Amino acid sequence: MIKKTLYFGNPAYLSLANGQLVIKLPEVEKQSNLPTVLKNSSITTLPIEDLGIIVLDNRQITLTHGLVTALMANCTVIISCDEHHLPFGLMLPMMSNTTFNERVRYQLEATLPLKKQLWQQTVKRKIENQAYLIGTRTSKSIAYMHVCADRVKSGDSDNQEALAAAYYWKNIFPDIPDFIRGQDGLPPNNLLNYGYSILRAVVARSLVISGLLPVMGIHHHNKYDAYCLADDIMEPYRPFVDQTVLDIMAKNEQIEELKKEIKRDLLSIPTVDVKIGGKRSPLMVAVAQTTASLAKCFSGESRKIAYPSFP
């Protein structure tokens, strides 16, 4: 089942009642002379179990603790945006799997050779997906990308990921020949940053559901990063965000500002179609298969992570 992504860009009162998210509008609630029937008609309710991600993008949004607890029990990700309206904070439950202790033990005991092999699979599929996107969206050759993918060794010791990335970012936006990928770079970096944040939340949520610790990566190990494993596992999924950004750029001349319509398209990333296990699947469902397969790799039941490709 695909969980819903909710975006709140205006002031709101969010609470819990009978297993439902209750949404009230402050401007309506503050009007004491307004008939109760009219106030009630402005209230929206949604089942908690249907929610996967909630994005909070306004300083005047109030949540009750009861609601936060219910969302965490459902493993619903809460994303908080900063003053620039970009995703800044991420809230997840500490555990959401009945065999959490066992799975975390397997994860912590994973050998270095295993982690290197898993990183090799990760980088190889990422480059293959990047190659597909260049080949279908530009007139540039993808031969070099395939060479990089074929040369990926255990642990990507030759750093083929970086070599492929240099070629990829130079060619994926033909109309921006001098494009440089960077967190604070010029557009469409703003779209990429936003999209990757949504993807990161989807992956982190799924890791917790699979009983894994997002902080313990197989490659990333920044001591300031609480989601190293999410940053690892999301790599082959990044090209699907890039595809969404290309689609947005094709229909919007102005991308300097993250307008409502652009955010709406970026928030649809969890529903983007991917191919995994030989079948077409929404990205959010595919990520669940990926993290479940990763847990099996840690436990010794499998040696291969299930990663997506383009349909």
Rank of each mutant, 00 (worst) to 15 (best):
L71A: 14
I262Y: 00
L21R: 04
I53F: 09
S42Y: 13
P188Q: 09
L21P: 05
R59V: 03
R151T: 02
R238D: 11
P11G: 04
T290I: 13
T122V: 06
R103A: 05
G9F: 04
C75P: 03
D57Y: 05
F298Y: 13
A110D: 01
P214G: 04
I61A: 00
E109F: 00
R181Q: 03
S157N: 08
G155W: 00
E27G: 04
S41W: 07
L92Y: 03
Q117I: 14
Y144I: 14
E256C: 03
K24N: 02
I23G: 13
L191A: 06
L207D: 02
K296Q: 15
T291L: 10
L14I: 12
A165R: 09
D178K: 13
R280H: 02
K124L: 06
N171V: 11
A131E: 01
L266R: 02
G19F: 15
Y13M: 05
M94W: 10
G155F: 04
H146W: 02
G217M: 12
G195N: 12
M284K: 12
Y196C: 13
L16V: 13
I53L: 14
G195T: 15
I255H: 07
R200D: 13
A286N: 08
L86E: 15
I53K: 08
V202K: 00
R125V: 12
